[in-house]
Write a protein that binds this DNA or RNA. Structure first.
Lengths: 216, 216
DNA sequence: GGCAGAAGTTCGGAAAGACGAATTTGCATC
DNA sequence: GATGCAAATTCGTCTTTCCGAACTTCTGCC
């Protein structure tokens, strides 16, 4: 069985590949994502290659093998179902569940996860809008784009949030930008400030923040 | 923060003390409980003494300090609330939850545990009848005795099960000896076989099994 | 085409936690 | 009091995962 550490590396690699749109991740990015030094990552990448979870070429990056991708999806499935479960069942705020799931994802059995899945009636996504991988390893591709890429006048509906830090999520709650919220881009000035209309209210948002919000 | 390993050692020491009625545990018992070799335990006992979780005298045994007892109770509280939660909310069978909780107890935050406690309306005991420590570190003492100590003719109600292995628990389910089940000791022969009446039915039980069942 | 500087790799070493063999201690028995 | 066995301890070693410093490779810029 894969150790907790290996699960975290594989998950990080998978998510970095997704984020970059490519299919390989850089040592430095992985180090930053996991909070370790680059040298540590290099040696772990060799380990991952040894156990056939990743293909690693020095100075070029890593990509996951099918086995690595499957493991990453299992971890992600556990993580996201746990998040959804905590919000649905225990009414936890959406800004607390990520951290909790980060630990629990390595501790729950697949049997329990499948039970949670059934209990929640097979949800398609977690509280942050991230799609939940199926038990057969399938992951639906979402059709969304950053709010920052919307032109002035464009209407949108919030479908997903990338940055899942508690502070950022709380600020979204304060602005009324929950998952499913609808609005319209009113203005975007050169300094990167974006103005939104949300029903009656108006909200101001930095471009960097709007980049973390996915809409359709 | 205490490592997963330290939490397991402290929990094992606490439970061995409880089981023996004394307040110290032997190296060999701890090794057997945790599935490691005695030498490993000896070195860990020194570590526990170093961080003031236990008092250790070579060749005599260990006992927990107040800090060690507090940690053990926190772990036990997490374990038992998780068990109760899995049974109540997800309808998991009582023979599966121990193993699951064994892993999860190290992964959930105290914040989440308190939320589960409130959600379950502050249950007094877990699915096996073990009392749940309160968040202030209090643990109620149960007034129960082994079914094996009942004399012929004595009536009883099952309050708690010591052996929490799936096989044993399933055999109890088959016999109708769930928590709360009432019955009467009908016979006890010299070979250690005990006969019970449970409502309409009759059940045969080995003395070793009856020793694992606590009643009042 | 050459050369900083950034990114990546190598290597020695440390901490946690475990094993296994050799040794020591304690205790019951004679 | 001597002895022998079971239990406990000691010690060297292994694996995993990390750090940090020294070194190598890559890349963008002149």
């Amino acid at each position: 069985m894969a150790s907790l550490t290996i699960e975290n590396y594989v998950k990080a690699i998978f998510q970095l590949c997704q984020a970059s749109g490519g299919n390989s991740a850089a040592t430095g990015q992985i180090a930053a994502a996991l909070g370790v030094l680059p040298g540590t990552v290099t040696s772990m990448l060799k380990t991952l290659a040894d156990v056939a979870l990743a293909s690693y070429t020095p100075y070029e990056g890593v990509s996951l093998t099918p086995a690595g991708r499957a493991l990453a999806l299992r971890v992600l499935r556990r993580h996201r179902l746990i998040e959804q479960f905590l919000v649905t069942t225990l009414d936890m705020p959406w800004d607390e569940v990520h951290e909790e799931a980060e630990h629990m994802e390595h501790a729950v059995s697949d049997r329990l996860i499948d039970r949670i899945d059934a209990y929640l009636n097979y949800p398609a996504s977690d509280p942050h809008g991230d799609p939940i991988p199926k038990s057969d390893g399938t992951l639906v591709v979402t059709a969304d784009k950053p709010l920052a890429s919307c032109i002035v006048g464009e209407k949108f509906r919030v479908t997903r949030v990338r940055d899942q830090s508690p502070e950022f999520l709380r600020s979204l709650t304060d602005l009324g930008l929950e998952i499913g919220a609808c609005g319209q881009v009113v203005a975007a000035d050169a300094t990167g400030q974006i103005t939104l209309r949300l029903g009656e209210a108006t909200a101001e948002l930095a471009r960097t923040a709007a980049d973390q919000i996915l809409v359709e």
